[in-house]
Deep mutational scan, measured.
Amino acid sequence: EAHAAIDTFTKYLDIDEDFATVLVEEGFSTLEELAYVPMKELLEIEGLDEPTVEALRERAKNALATIAQ
């Protein structure tokens, strides 16, 4: 499951495998979680700032909209 989540994140969020791995290690496994989890939870991840989190959430929401079509 972790590998599938990493693949999904790299494909749809335009991030590298290392960043995707950090997200999975922090407990995220779906685009929905990244799109809708409280921003505070993402900001608790070391190295993430508000602009990065906002961009990540926007990419996740856009990916979900694209997949739904």
Rank of each mutant, 00 (worst) to 15 (best):
A20L: 03
G27Q: 02
P51I: 12
S29A: 09
F19Q: 08
L23P: 00
D16A: 09
A65Y: 04
Y36M: 12
F9P: 01
A2I: 13
T21R: 15
E54T: 13
T8G: 06
L48E: 01
G47H: 06
A5H: 06
K61M: 09
K40G: 12
V53G: 14
F19L: 15
E46K: 14
L48F: 10
S29K: 14
D7I: 08
G47L: 06
R57L: 11
V24L: 10
T10S: 06
A68N: 12
E33L: 07
V53S: 09
R57G: 04
L23G: 00
Y36I: 12
A55M: 14
A4M: 11
D14L: 08
M39I: 15
E26H: 15
L48A: 05
P51L: 12
T66E: 15
I6W: 02
A5K: 08
R57V: 11
F19R: 04
E33W: 02
E1T: 13
N62T: 14
R59S: 09
L56Y: 00
E44C: 09
V22L: 15
E50D: 07
L42N: 03
E1S: 13
F9E: 01
A63Y: 03
T30A: 06
I67E: 06
L43F: 06
K11E: 07
E26Y: 15
L56H: 00
D16N: 09
Y36G: 10
L43H: 05
E25K: 15
R59I: 05
D7L: 07
A63G: 07
K61G: 05
E32L: 10
L13T: 01
L64N: 02
E41T: 13
T30S: 11
L34V: 10
R57I: 14
E33T: 06
E17T: 10
P51H: 13
D16R: 04
T30D: 04
A5D: 04
P38Q: 07
F19V: 11
G47R: 08
L48D: 01
G47I: 07
F9T: 01
A65M: 08
E17M: 12
L43G: 05
E25H: 11
G47P: 03
E44R: 14
V53K: 04
T8D: 09
L56W: 02
L43I: 08
E46T: 14
E25S: 14
E44T: 13
A35W: 04
E33V: 05
T30H: 06
L42S: 03
L48W: 07
Y12D: 03
T66F: 08
E58D: 10
I45V: 09
V24C: 05
T8F: 11
P51Q: 15
E1Q: 12
I45C: 04
A20E: 00
A2H: 14
T66D: 11
Y12T: 04
A20Y: 02
K11H: 11
V37F: 11
L31A: 00
L31E: 00
F19I: 09
E26C: 09
S29W: 13
L23I: 04
A55S: 09
E41G: 07
A5G: 05
A55V: 12
L56K: 00
A20R: 01
L64R: 02
A2N: 13
L23M: 03
L31Q: 00
D14R: 03
T21W: 15
I67K: 06
Y36D: 10
K61N: 07
Y12A: 05
V22N: 08
D18K: 14
L56V: 05
L23Q: 00
E32N: 07
T10A: 07
M39V: 13
I45N: 03
K40M: 11
L23S: 00
A4I: 12
E25L: 15
A63Q: 04
A35S: 07
L43N: 05
E46G: 11
A2F: 14
A4Y: 08
L64H: 03
T66I: 14
I15Q: 01
N62G: 11
E46F: 15
T66A: 14
T21E: 08
L56G: 00
L31I: 09
V22K: 15
E50A: 13
L64V: 07
L13F: 02
P38I: 02
V37D: 06
T8N: 12
N62S: 14
K40S: 14
K61Y: 04
I15F: 03
E32C: 09
I6M: 07
T21M: 14
A63W: 01
M39F: 08
V22M: 15
Y12S: 04
L56F: 02
V22S: 09
A65V: 14
G47V: 06
A2D: 11
L31T: 01
I6K: 08
D18I: 12
A60G: 01
Q69A: 15
E54W: 02
L23Y: 00
E32V: 09
D18R: 14
E26G: 15
K61I: 13
I15V: 10
T66M: 13
E41V: 13
S29P: 03
D7F: 04
Y36E: 11
V22P: 01
V37M: 10
L13A: 00
T52P: 02
E26S: 15
I6N: 03
R57N: 05
E17H: 12
A60C: 04
E33Q: 11
I6P: 03
E41R: 12
L48I: 11
A68T: 10
E33F: 04
T10V: 15
E58R: 07
A63F: 03
H3Y: 07
L34R: 00
R57Q: 15
D14H: 09
Y12F: 10
Q69I: 10
V53H: 02
E50K: 13
V22D: 03
F28S: 00
A20N: 01
V53Y: 07
A4P: 11
M39N: 07
E44W: 10
E17R: 15
S29Y: 15
A4H: 13
V37Q: 11
T52W: 09
T10R: 06
T21D: 04
V53I: 11
G27V: 02
T66L: 14
A5C: 06
F19E: 04
D7T: 07
P38L: 04
